[in-house]
Design a protein around this nucleic acid. Structure first.
Lengths: 175, 175
DNA sequence: TACAACCGGTTTCATTATGCAATCGGTAGG
DNA sequence: CCTACCGATTGCATAATGAAACCGGTTGTA
């Protein structure tokens, strides 16, 4: 799998790699939803991706080195998909995209929480989150695929964030 | 022109708007190259965009509110394309994408200068650049379209950056 | 041992997007 | 008047996308 190389511009090359409707959405689900198996990605997809499209995207992302694939020892037919270092370094890109979309597009509030958190947290939070992702996807890619384990950093901060917002809301309504 | 709204997720919605091979490349050329006319975008395109694709993308970007179109008073047939505020706010997204591409894809050195500058300059530089873009595209969208006027901030910093790098290189070779 | 549910996909076929090349009618400047 | 240029449009071929059905193998359960 090779990209076109229409030009050596970083923005152009990135669009040749990620410039389609699905690739970043699949990476998002692996990264934030810890969906590590084909079926998880297929059936829990908010957007209802078709199985052939998902298969094609995963194959492409593996060929490009953004995702790795390995056998799941607990089930001879299962495969575990993991993020590689280049994909983990997309965190700032996803944060910027999320922040922009939240501001300029008709997003739904519940799906915007992570984007808001990433924006408020800034680079320091991104680094913590990326460290989590390395632990889950690279150092312990098999153990990290079990259950619904997601990033401890993100889980803790999301909860703190929701609590703070609930408290703020209650306070505003109380007067 | 409406987007699909497969889901209300900020990342998904952004990919529905910008998730194709050309939209961000066109915005890049308007933003960094100050290409304000159809022909400029067509013939100076590094990637060789086809005229029908360019026409379709411009129409779509105008419909989505990322680009505005107005008559050029100096030529009854010319149109001036300008960035709107939402597109100007893509600067951090383009900076993040450029930084990622520069690190992980086979970019060419000369086309990476701006990406490197934006990455080193950080949010403070982005803000200055965005202020320039507002001046050029919103406050004086007609005057800004004349000649090869680009952002003063970006031009000055790019030059300073190139000088610094040349000096560094000369110093390294001198020993 | 039968069997249903589940596994990661593949196949088929229709629709849509992309891309190249040629071309369009109107305009500007000499 | 004529040439170059203006922002596109048209025709046509190929590639990408998408919905739905389907596949052989595996697993857990009765």
């Amino acid at each position: 799998m090779d990209i076109e190389r229409r030009s050596g511009c970083p923005i152009n090359l990135t669009m040749e790699v990620l410039g389609d409707r699905w690739s970043l959405v699949v990476i998002r689900d692996i990264m934030f939803g810890n969906r590590r198996h084909f079926r998880e990605l297929l059936t829990h997809s908010q957007e209802g991706i078709a199985s052939n499209i998902l298969a094609a995207r995963l194959k492409r992302l593996v060929a490009l080195g953004l995702v790795s694939k390995q056998d799941d020892p607990s089930h001879s037919q299962k495969s575990i998909y993991s993020l590689t270092e280049p994909a983990i370094q997309l965190v700032p890109v996803l944060a910027a995209i999320g922040a922009w979309g939240r501001r300029h597009l008709p997003v739904s509030e519940d799906l915007s929480i992570r984007a808001e958190l990433l924006e408020v947290g800034g680079p320091a939070l991104w680094d913590d989150f990326m460290a989590d992702l390395r632990r889950i996807h690279i150092e312990d890619s098999i153990g990290g695929a079990n259950g619904s384990v997601t990033s401890p950093v993100l889980a803790r901060l999301t909860q703190a964030f929701l609590d703070a917002r609930a408290k703020m809301k209650a306070g505003a309504e109380g007067r």
